[in-house]
């Protein structure tokens, strides 16, 4: 249970990233986008959630 908009937006963003990582595998297998290091743009519309996103993460490379 989340108690702030930022927390629920943050969780939504986490789900988005998890799906994006899966999609990236599919993209590689389908040879979409050519090179394997093609980046993805992900959008979330909450400033607080974005502010809390660490610049270094364990499983995904964010920039």
């Amino acid at each position: 249970m989340t108690r702030s908009t930022a927390a629920s937006e943050y969780l939504a963003a986490a789900t988005l990233v998890a799906e994006a990582l899966w999609f990236k595998k599919l993209q590689q297998d389908l040879q979409l986008g050519g090179s394997s290091d093609s980046s993805m743009q992900l959008f979330s519309d909450n400033a607080a959630a974005l502010f809390n996103t660490p610049s270094r993460t364990k499983h995904a490379c964010l920039s």
Binding site: S8, L11, A12, T15, L16, E19, F23, L32, G33, Q41
Partner: peptide, 24 residues
């Protein structure tokens, strides 16, 4: 070649449980 993803959430959208809804 760029894939674009959008994610959003609505806090406490469910009147019964107070849970949030998320979508992408």
């Amino acid at each position: 070649q760029q894939v674009i993803g959008f994610g959003d959430a609505s806090l406490g959208g469910c009147p019964d449980t107070g849970r949030s809804t998320e979508g992408y």
